[in-house]
Computed example of a mutant assay.
Amino acid sequence: MTDEQKKRCHEIIHAASISAAAVGAGAASVPVVGSFVSLCDESAITPIQITMIVSLGKVFDVSLDKTTAASLLTGMVTAKVGRKVAGFFAGLVPGLGSVVNGGTAASITEGVGWAAVAYFDK
């Protein structure tokens, strides 16, 4: 990976992670039933991650459509499990949900991004 590719990957991944954190933190603060919040933020975070994967592919001259990117994301199922576990524990402490949910969304998006970079860099 060239320095320019690495720089571009950092920009793409960090922008997606910040967006995911904002969605995750915002969804946790909505006063609704826990599973509905999980659905809401997942439905908003998944497109962010798909767009990130498509953008990372372009950095490595790999052309992906959104369906293929979604398949790659689905293969990284541990991200979904991690969000569910973190969401459960965050719900046990009032006020902590936004911080934990946002941080978890950012961390997982960051991990998914770098996993995609490793995949494309092969």
Rank of each mutant, 00 (worst) to 15 (best):
M1K: 08
M1L: 12
D3P: 05
E4V: 06
E4R: 06
Q5A: 07
K7V: 04
C9N: 06
H10D: 09
A15N: 13
A16I: 02
A16F: 02
A16Y: 02
S17L: 03
S17W: 01
S17H: 02
I18C: 01
S19L: 04
S19N: 14
A20N: 04
A21H: 05
A22M: 10
V23E: 03
G24K: 12
A25W: 02
G26L: 11
A27N: 07
A28G: 09
S29H: 09
S29F: 13
V30H: 08
P31G: 10
P31A: 13
V33T: 14
G34P: 14
S35R: 12
F36L: 15
F36N: 04
S38A: 14
S38P: 04
C40M: 14
S43D: 05
S43V: 10
S43C: 12
A44P: 01
A44I: 12
T46Y: 11
T46L: 14
T46D: 09
T46N: 07
P47K: 06
Q49N: 08
M52W: 05
I53Y: 00
L56S: 00
L56P: 02
G57F: 00
K58Y: 02
S63P: 10
T67M: 10
T67N: 10
T68R: 14
A70M: 12
S71K: 12
L73D: 03
L73N: 12
T74A: 15
T74R: 11
G75H: 06
G75S: 13
V77H: 07
V77Y: 07
T78E: 12
K80L: 11
V81L: 15
G82Y: 04
R83V: 08
V85T: 15
A86S: 15
A86P: 01
G87H: 11
G87F: 04
F88Y: 15
F89Q: 05
A90V: 05
L92G: 10
L92W: 14
V93L: 09
P94R: 08
V99Y: 13
V99P: 02
V100R: 04
N101L: 10
G102W: 03
G102S: 05
A106E: 07
S107E: 01
I108E: 06
E110C: 09
G111T: 13
V112Q: 15
A115P: 04
A116V: 06
V117F: 00
A118D: 04
Y119I: 02
F120V: 02
D121W: 00
K122E: 08
